[in-house]
């Protein structure tokens, strides 16, 4: 049994509800299916405290249509990557910050807030990043329905035509 498989089994033995939703997809790569917020935070604090995943590389936002997915990439001493994915509805994208466990996620979480409109609780008070000051409220450029052609650089306003607004 490879090292990665044993890690997957260790996680499944502690979180039986993850059985079949976490797998090794390539050497040194463990991916999870989209997890609910509660499951996700239990998993993250477990791998941080018990399994030695001390490094957080990255938080990637993805737009899955109805939901927003936030993929957090961790690694441990053996450089095994664990990509845990959290999913939240687009209507109400509230997540909790992992800043306390992993300070190195700060910039990435700020990006999730700015570019995907995630509402993150527990972030320290830091300057806006990466969008400029005066960026229109409620306009999140990395969501799929956001089209650059409706953004006016001169006035800094985002005005999609009516039907797009309704559908999006």
């Amino acid at each position: 049994m490879s090292n990665e498989e044993s890690k997957v089994l260790q996680i499944i033995s502690n979180f039986p509800n993850l059985d079949g939703r976490i797998r090794q997809i390539a050497p040194k790569r463990i991916f999870t299916d989209p997890l609910e917020s509660g499951e996700f935070h239990q998993l993250v604090s477990y791998i941080h405290d018990e399994m030695g995943f001390f490094r957080a590389h990255h938080a990637v936002g993805v737009d899955d249509g109805e939901n927003l997915g936030f993929i957090y990439i961790f690694s441990d001493e053996d450089n095994t990557i664990l990509a845990a994915k959290q999913t939240v509805p687009k209507e109400n994208p509230e997540i909790e910050s992992l800043n306390k466990l992993y300070p190195s996620l700060l910039l990435h979480e700020l990006e999730l807030a700015d570019l995907f409109g995630a509402v993150i609780s527990g972030l320290p008070d830091v300057p806006h990043y990466p969008l400029p000051d005066g960026w229109p409220e409620g306009s999140y450029p990395m969501r799929k329905e956001w089209k650059p052609e409706y953004f006016n650089k001169e006035t800094m306003t985002y005005e999609p035509p009516e039907e797009v607004q309704k559908n999006g």
Binding site: V126, P127, H128, Y129, P130, L131, P132, P141, M142, K144, W146, P148
Partner: peptide, 17 residues
């Protein structure tokens, strides 16, 4: 020290999609 970065954000990832 307060660090402000992000002045160079060019939206490349959006462009890639």
């Amino acid at each position: 020290v307060v660090i402000g970065i992000g002045y160079n954000h060019r939206g490349l990832e959006k462009a890639c999609e």
